[in-house]
Design a protein around this nucleic acid. Structure first.
Lengths: 215, 215
DNA sequence: TAGATTGTTAATCGATTAACAATC
DNA sequence: TAGATTGTTAATCGATTAACAATC
């Protein structure tokens, strides 16, 4: 049995950021970068970068720094962007619509293969080439198609019910757009977006900065 | 001069969560709650709740706990949900559309007063009773209307330009939906949503949990 | 008064930063 | 070889948790 060190959430949440900056460096045709240079671009310490990367392996070279393309590939592998994830959207409202039309997800390995809704008038319509189906078909669909992730954009009062349902049907990943904190016992992985929390924090910070400028 | 203790971001980001749980308690007609009971509901420690709340004041009573309605009101005041924020959306694409249709924002004090886009075919259309105007009108609009927050749902390659523009026009708060990390020198407050970062973290965690179950 | 629970101080834990030996 | 920069250990900082005196 291989000894696995536990990676902290703080590190994990920085990975997509490294990924983005490295992707930018490639576009800028920059071939190598030191932790110091990268730290200046990202506004974090060089120490943190080296610590973070060394959770996963020694990707650099003393006296040289990091090869941009190699490091990008390694982080891609860590994040699993080289793998593909099958996703469904539940809730064909405005947010579901927006997600279905996001071309970037497919580029990052997340394929949206179906959209579900309870409203009869939505069923049969097509959003960005993806058919909208009725919720009644969901169990049958999941039996016949492998689904990794359910993106839930249902009204808040339906979220627990829908989350429980998709979990019981075997889906292991939930991307939750409702304000409710989902708590599912079985090993389901949940990422919350909580848009209104983010907006309220913005409001708070704005109010604070005003008060500090006035007094 | 009043001595002001600096509130950490960790605490600030938990405030909307307290707000939500208290709002739920009110709906459940629960009048009082102890930090212990609340800690069980929220799955955080009672210590943390008491520490967090005491950053802002002593809202409880020894031997009794917290009065739900009173605590809710106090957190509302802290968050500024009793104040109103004027918002504009820049970018009338699918995400801009979804935001414009979110009824919850207005309930929380965030009024969307206008939507802007560069595309001529969008200009003049109405989304959820809000008129879409051309970007050319933006400077004039901001001169004649007070705007607190710009919600930016423009393509990633336009984000820096648009963010700079709204900042120079005097807007102090930006809700950023692009993957780019905005960095604006003048005291602009930025909240990033970074949807694809969240999705990539979900992908990573999903991949990890699978690997841990297999070996 | 006795019991409960806060507000607050002290202890612990974890994450970030600094330092430097290893090495390309 | 000399210079640069990593990988990694040690020090610091901040956030979380525990403990308990204050008090309703």
């Amino acid at each position: 049995m291989v000894e696995e060190k536990k990676i902290s959430m703080a590190v994990i949440r920085r990975l997509p950021r490294y990924f983005r900056y490295l992707s930018d460096l490639i576009k800028l045709d920059i071939k190598r970068i030191s932790s110091k240079e990268l730290s200046e671009r990202m506004h974090i310490t060089a120490s943190q970068i080296r610590q973070d990367l060394n959770c996963f392996g020694g990707f650099g070279q003393q006296g040289y720094g990091y090869n941009v393309e190699y490091l990008y590939d390694e982080i891609s592998k860590i994040l699993g962007t080289n793998k593909r994830f099958s996703c469904i959207i539940v809730g064909a409202g405005n947010m579901g619509n927006a997600l279905a039309n996001y071309e970037n997800f497919a580029r990052r390995g997340f394929d949206i293969i179906a959209i579900f809704d309870v409203k009869k008038e939505k069923v049969g319509t097509v959003i960005n080439n993806i058919k909208v189906m009725h919720m009644d078909i969901l169990p049958e669909f999941i039996k016949t198609h492998h689904v990794d992730i359910a993106m839930l954009t249902v009204p808040n009062n339906k979220i627990n019910e829908v989350a429980t349902q998709v979990t019981e049907l075997g889906i292991k990943g939930i991307w939750n757009f409702s304000p409710t904190d989902l708590r599912l016992d079985n090993g389901t992985i949940v990422e919350n977006v909580h848009l209104s929390d983010s907006l309220m924090v913005l409001g708070y910070r704005l109010k604070e900065s005003r008060e500090n400028h006035n007094h």
